[in-house]
Simulated scan of single mutants.
Amino acid sequence: MNNEREELLKKLEEIKHNDYKEDDKKVIKETTDLMLKYIGDTDPHLRDELIYSTFCYWITEKCYFNSEELKEILNVILDKNHLFYKIGSEKEDSVVTRTFSMLVIDLLLYMNMQKQYLSLEEFNNLKDCVIRYYNEEKDLRGYEERIGWMHAAAHGADVLCSIVRSKQCDKETMLKVLDGFNHVLENTKYLLSHEEDERMATVVYEVVIRNVLGREKVCQWISRLGSVITPGYSDEKYIQRVNTKNFVRSLYFRLIREDNTTEYTDVLFKKEEELNNFLKYNKEIKEELEIL
């Protein structure tokens, strides 16, 4: 039995019971180090309900960490044993180390928006790591009973949304973020069935509403979606088409509710027509009705 892990679980249960209050700085430091060590534990109760929840409260609500301590956590999270732990592997438990590292990065970015503690150089390093991760992650499973949530595409999208929301984000970064979605949508193995499309659409919505990148560039990007899908059928093409179609629909219905978005929704509508193989039945049904 791993006594260190069991002690951590027991301590986090106690912290949760006490409304996440902890006055001893030494205990906070020791517990934080262990939470970082076990952030990819395969037990969803320890990983999600205890470690991640404690990070949420300690970082964003209790504000137990000063700027330098937040940077120390970030430096660990971005290393080869966390965000890039066994990057490129598939169907392995290592994916949760990477995806839950992303969730902690999102908390750290939230704090940077509240009180900018990252220099532009530090922010750029962070966003480069996140974009690199999103382009290199190959395990896009959403949820499995044994291990719980993995959700790389969704967790990554949440962090990318925080990046484009930041005042330190420039146009070039926004373009790289949008292009990162191509990697996910063009994958040929995983159907995104846990609302990853909605989380990704939120990022593009943020880009559109901020109106920094410009309408033309966003519309050009939308027009290129699905360009890798060639005619004919295969399981790989089916996955690419369905993932892209669902994303396009999610983004369409997100934007159609806003004013002055017709330029975007027109392009999305046309793109959905290209991806929807069932529209041919509309014509057949109408022709049958005319005969009757």
Rank of each mutant, 00 (worst) to 15 (best):
Leu178Phe: 08
Lys189Gly: 04
Asp33Asn: 14
Val96Met: 14
Glu272Cys: 10
Leu78Gln: 03
Arg241Ala: 01
Lys25Met: 11
Thr54Glu: 00
Gly214Asn: 12
Glu14Val: 03
Leu108Gly: 01
Ile239Asn: 05
Phe123Asn: 04
Thr244Met: 02
Tyr281Cys: 03
Arg47Leu: 04
Tyr264Phe: 04
Leu289Glu: 15
Lys115Asn: 08
Leu108Lys: 03
Lys245Arg: 03
Asn3Gly: 05
Glu22Arg: 11
Met35Arg: 05
Leu185Val: 10
Asp128Tyr: 07
Asp197Ser: 12
Tyr117Thr: 04
Val248Glu: 04
Leu275Asp: 04
Asp235His: 10
Leu255Val: 12
Phe65Pro: 05
Asn75Asp: 06
Asn2His: 07
Arg165Ala: 06
Phe278Trp: 13
Phe253Trp: 07
Gln168Arg: 00
Glu137His: 11
Tyr110Ile: 11
Thr265Arg: 07
Glu61Trp: 08
Glu137Gln: 08
Lys280Met: 12
Ala201Asp: 00
Val95Asp: 00
Val242Leu: 05
Phe247Gln: 06
Lys283Gln: 14
Asn75Ala: 14
Glu273Gln: 06
Leu185His: 02
Asn187Ser: 13
Cys161Gln: 03
Ile256Tyr: 11
Lys217Ala: 15
Gly142Lys: 08
Thr173Lys: 15
His17Gln: 15
Leu74Asn: 00
Leu12Ala: 07
Gly180Glu: 00
Val96Cys: 15
Asn246Pro: 00
Glu13Ser: 10
Tyr252Gly: 00
His82Trp: 05
Glu172Asn: 13
Leu118Phe: 15
Leu175His: 07
Glu6Val: 09
Asn243Trp: 11
Gln168Met: 10
Leu118Thr: 08
Met113Trp: 13
Leu120Ala: 12
Lys217His: 11
Tyr264Thr: 12
Glu30Met: 09
Leu9Asp: 02
Arg132Gln: 11
Ala201Thr: 01
Ile163Lys: 12
Leu178His: 04
Leu275Gln: 14
Cys161Trp: 01
Asp158Leu: 10
Ser234Glu: 13
Leu292Ile: 15
Ile87His: 01
Met200Leu: 06
Glu216Ala: 09
Cys129Tyr: 13
Phe65Cys: 12
His17Ala: 15
Asp106Ala: 14
Asn260Thr: 06
Ile131Thr: 08
Leu279His: 15
Thr244Leu: 12
Val27Glu: 06
Gln116Asp: 13
His155Gly: 14
Leu292Asp: 07
His155Asp: 07
Val130Gly: 01
Pro44Val: 10
Ile73Phe: 08
Ile73Glu: 00
Cys129Phe: 10
Gly226Glu: 01
Arg254Trp: 05
Ile39Cys: 02
Phe247Thr: 02
Gln116Thr: 04
His17Ser: 14
Val27Asn: 11
Glu136Pro: 01
Gln240Phe: 03
Glu68Trp: 13
Val104Met: 08
Lys11Cys: 03
Asp235Lys: 11
Phe84Cys: 02
Glu206Arg: 05
Phe100Asn: 05
Glu216Met: 14
Asn125Phe: 12
Ile131Trp: 02
Phe253Tyr: 14
Asp259Cys: 09
Asn2Leu: 13
Asn112Met: 04
Glu144Trp: 10
Lys280Glu: 09
Ile87Thr: 02
Asp139Thr: 09
Glu263Arg: 03
Ser166Met: 07
Arg165Leu: 14
Asn211Gly: 12
Lys271Thr: 07
Met102Trp: 02
Glu49Ile: 04
Glu4Pro: 00
